[in-house]
C-alpha cells in the first residue's frame, strides 16, 4: 500500500501572499473560477488560513487530519469520519451545526457556514492530483508528500547544508 500524502508547511518560505487561501476558496466553489466565485452565494470560503505573528512571521494553518482526530470522536452526530485515504471528512448532510468540533479542534481550522449552519474543513481536494493550495503556492511553502518522503527530503537538505558548511 502506498503511503497517503499530507500537506506539509515550510514556515520559513511563506510570504503571506494568501494565494493558497484564494485557490482553496475557488476550488471549493460551484463555478471553479475566481470570476464566478466572487459573486457566488454563499461566498466560497478557504479552508486554510495564513495568519500573522508579529513582528515578521506568516503561518499557514491547515487541518492536520489528526491521527486521533479530536473532532471525529467528539462529534455528537457521527458526521466526521476518516476516509480510507486517511482524510478526516465532515459529512455536511449529517452535520447539525452544534460546533462541538470547533470547540475541540486544537488548530482552529474548522470553519462554520453560517448560511447553511454546517461545519466545513479541508478535504485535501479529493478530485485533484494535488490540493489547490499546494499548487497555488509560489514559494513552495506548502508541500504535498508522504510523511516518509517529506522527512527524507528534509534529511537530505540538512545533510547537504552540513556538507556545504564543512567545505563540501
Amino acid at each position: 500500500m502506498t503511503e497517503a500524502k499530507e500537506i506539509f508547511v515550510r514556515l520559513d518560505r511563506c510570504m503571506a501572499c494568501h494565494s493558497c487561501e484564494m485557490a482553496c476558496a475557488v476550488a471549493h466553489s460551484a463555478g471553479q473560477s475566481l470570476y464566478t466565485a466572487i459573486s457566488e452565494k454563499p461566498t466560497p470560503k478557504p479552508r486554510l488560513y495564513v495568519e500573522w505573528v508579529a513582528p515578521d512571521r506568516a503561518v499557514p494553518i491547515v487541518c492536520r487530519h489528526c491521527e486521533d482526530a479530536p473532532c471525529m470522536h467528539a462529534c455528537i452526530a457521527g458526521a466526521i469520519s476518516r476516509s480510507p485515504a486517511g482524510v478526516v471528512e465532515t459529512d455536511a448532510d449529517k452535520c447539525i451545526g452544534c460546533w462541538t468540533c470547533v470547540m475541540v479542534c486544537p488548530y482552529g481550522v474548522i470553519g462554520r457556514h453560517l448560511e447553511e449552519h454546517k461545519a466545513y474543513r479541508c478535504d485535501r481536494c479529493p478530485d485533484r492530483e494535488t490540493p489547490a493550495c499546494v499548487n497555488a503556492c509560489p514559494t513552495r511553502a506548502l508541500i504535498y508528500q508522504s510523511a516518509t518522503g517529506y522527512s527524507r527530503s528534509q534529511r537530505q537538505t540538512a545533510s547537504r547544508a552540513m556538507l556545504a558548511g564543512n567545505g563540501g
Partner: peptide, 10 residues
C-alpha cells in the same frame, strides 16, 4: 462568535 474556540480549550 465562537471562532477557533478549540485553541482556547487547548
Amino acid at each position: 462568535d465562537i471562532a477557533r474556540a478549540g485553541l482556547y480549550h487547548t
